[in-house]
């Protein structure tokens, strides 16, 4: 059995070990598909929907998240079509309207081309990306954090709201949380939120720079650091 498989992303045929997600492959090759809830080496939830791509099959294309799509031989993916960019922009707009008080969220909004926020700002302190839950459960097996509730009432919490003994205060949850760094100009007070739109850097926790950057078109729109 071959250990590798080949997928085509934005016209480039890429070789990858079997079992990788399309997002993994893309990031490996420097195709910087925006993402938020993806946590390397942990299961992917497909919650933020930012990493959506078009999966072209039998002449039809379906919009699906690249983090949950396993790369299979001969797959054809388009990660940066006009439609995808428009959809991503709307999703990022929803996110930044909800939780603008985070450098990561503001950066994602810029990367996705958000120029205006057409909804009243809110000032939430959690985007429910699930990184903390997954790191607690999968890396440490502590199961101290979980998603509680449904819909808009969904939140991350300890059982009964009380920190359990299984929590060893390792702080991994804080380390992976996108909300922990406030925007450069300082925390945004309730009622005074705005679309930052200035910073063009990458998400601070995705600091790993791949060795092979293909200098793709995608990077131009996102003001990718490697484009300079």
């Amino acid at each position: 059995m071959l250990k590798y498989t080949h997928v085509t992303i934005d016209g480039a045929t890429l070789r990858t070990p079997k079992g990788q997600s399309v997002l993994d492959v893309a990031l490996e090759y420097g195709i910087c598909i925006p993402h938020l809830c993806h946590l390397p080496n942990h299961t992917d939830m497909g919650a933020c929907r930012l990493c959506i791509v078009e999966h072209v099959k039998n002449g039809r294309s379906t919009v699906t998240t690249s983090c949950t799509l396993e790369a299979k031989e001969g797959m054809v993916i388009r990660s940066n079509t006009d439609r995808i960019r428009a959809l991503r922009m709307n999703i990022a707009e929803l996110l930044v309207a909800e939780a603008p008080n985070s450098k990561a969220v503001q950066d994602v909004a810029v990367r996705c081309g958000v120029k205006q926020v057409r909804y009243p700002f809110r000032n939430k302190d959690c985007v429910l990306c699930g990184r903390c839950v997954r790191v607690c459960r999968e890396l440490w097996g502590a199961n101290a954090l979980g998603f509680i509730g449904r819909g808009m009432k969904r939140r991350v919490d300890f059982p009964f709201g009380v920190r359990p003994d299984s929590c060893k205060v390792c702080n991994s949850c804080i380390d992976v949380c996108p909300m922990t760094i406030t925007p450069c100009a300082g925390p945004m007070l309730p009622g005074r939120e705005y679309l930052c739109g200035q910073c063009e850097s990458q998400l601070s926790m995705n600091a790993t720079v791949p060795d092979t950057c293909v200098l793709c078109d995608l990077g131009k729109g996102f003001q990718c650091a490697r484009q300079r």
């Binding site: 939830m45 497909g46 919650a47 933020c48 929907r49 930012l50 709307n90 999703i91 929803l94 996110l95 309207a97 909800e98 909804y119 009243p120 985007v127 429910l128 998603f147 509730g149 449904r150 819909g151 808009m152 009432k153 969904r154």
Partner: peptide, 21 residues
């Protein structure tokens, strides 16, 4: 739908809420 949404994904959780707004 807002009450019944599981809340996992952004477009459903936030999108329905904003449409309702």
């Amino acid at each position: 739908l807002r009450e019944e949404s599981c809340g996992k994904c952004v477009p459903c959780r936030l999108g329905i809420d904003r449409m309702l707004e």
